[in-house]
Simulated scan of single mutants.
Amino acid sequence: MPETSRLNLSAGLASVATAILLVALKLWALGQTGALSIAASLADSALDLMVSLGALAAIFYAARPPDDDHAFGHSAAEDLAALGQAVFILASASIIAFAAMTRLLSADPEPLSQEGPGIVAMALSITLTALLVLYQRWVARKTGNRVVAADSLHYLGDLLPNIGAIFALWASANLGLMRIDAVVALAAAGMLAVGALGIGKGAWDALMDRAAPPETIARIEALTKGCTGVRGFHDLKTRRSGQRLFVNLHIELDGAQSLNDAHAIGARLKHAILDEFPGADVIIHFDPVR
Results as ranks from 00 to 15, higher is better:
residue 214 P to S: 07
residue 273 I to Q: 01
residue 40 A to I: 02
residue 165 A to Q: 11
residue 123 A to K: 13
residue 102 T to R: 10
residue 133 V to Q: 00
residue 264 A to W: 09
residue 200 G to K: 02
residue 180 I to F: 15
residue 176 G to A: 03
residue 31 G to F: 01
residue 143 T to I: 04
residue 161 P to H: 05
residue 260 N to E: 13
residue 66 P to K: 12
residue 38 I to K: 07
residue 94 S to W: 15
residue 2 P to S: 15
residue 165 A to L: 12
residue 99 A to V: 05
residue 231 R to T: 01
residue 77 A to T: 15
residue 149 A to S: 11
residue 35 A to Q: 01
residue 209 D to T: 03
residue 6 R to Y: 05
residue 124 L to Q: 00
residue 257 Q to Y: 07
residue 30 L to C: 04
residue 276 E to S: 04
residue 251 I to F: 00
residue 203 A to E: 01
residue 75 S to W: 08
residue 28 W to S: 09
residue 133 V to E: 01
residue 23 V to G: 05
residue 98 F to N: 11
residue 203 A to Y: 00
residue 23 V to P: 04
residue 230 V to A: 03
residue 274 L to C: 07
residue 193 A to K: 05
residue 90 L to C: 09
residue 180 I to Q: 13
residue 217 I to R: 10
residue 130 A to D: 12
residue 106 S to K: 03
residue 148 V to H: 10
residue 16 V to C: 10
residue 16 V to H: 08
residue 182 A to F: 08
residue 63 A to D: 14
residue 254 D to E: 13
residue 175 L to F: 10
residue 228 T to M: 14
residue 165 A to P: 08
residue 49 L to D: 02
residue 116 G to A: 15
residue 221 E to S: 09
residue 181 D to Q: 10
residue 21 L to N: 07
residue 45 S to Q: 07
residue 211 A to T: 13
residue 110 E to I: 07
residue 265 I to Q: 00
residue 58 A to P: 04
residue 216 T to H: 14
residue 251 I to E: 00
residue 68 D to A: 14
residue 141 R to A: 10
residue 273 I to P: 00
residue 235 D to A: 09
residue 178 M to R: 03
residue 169 L to W: 04
residue 114 Q to D: 15
residue 230 V to W: 02
residue 175 L to R: 12
residue 44 D to A: 14
residue 99 A to K: 13
residue 144 G to I: 01
residue 205 D to T: 03
residue 163 I to Y: 03
residue 17 A to D: 08
residue 111 P to C: 07
residue 288 P to S: 10
residue 99 A to N: 14
residue 9 L to Y: 09
residue 40 A to Q: 02
residue 225 K to N: 13
residue 32 Q to F: 04
residue 140 A to M: 09
residue 283 I to Q: 08
residue 11 A to R: 03
residue 13 L to R: 09
residue 150 A to M: 02
residue 98 F to Q: 14
residue 82 A to N: 10
residue 207 L to Y: 05
residue 232 G to S: 13
residue 264 A to M: 12
residue 189 A to N: 01
residue 149 A to G: 04
residue 260 N to L: 11
residue 185 A to S: 11
residue 221 E to Y: 06
residue 276 E to W: 00
residue 199 I to R: 00
residue 107 A to S: 13
residue 128 L to S: 05
residue 237 K to A: 14
residue 248 N to H: 09
residue 220 I to Y: 04
residue 172 S to F: 04
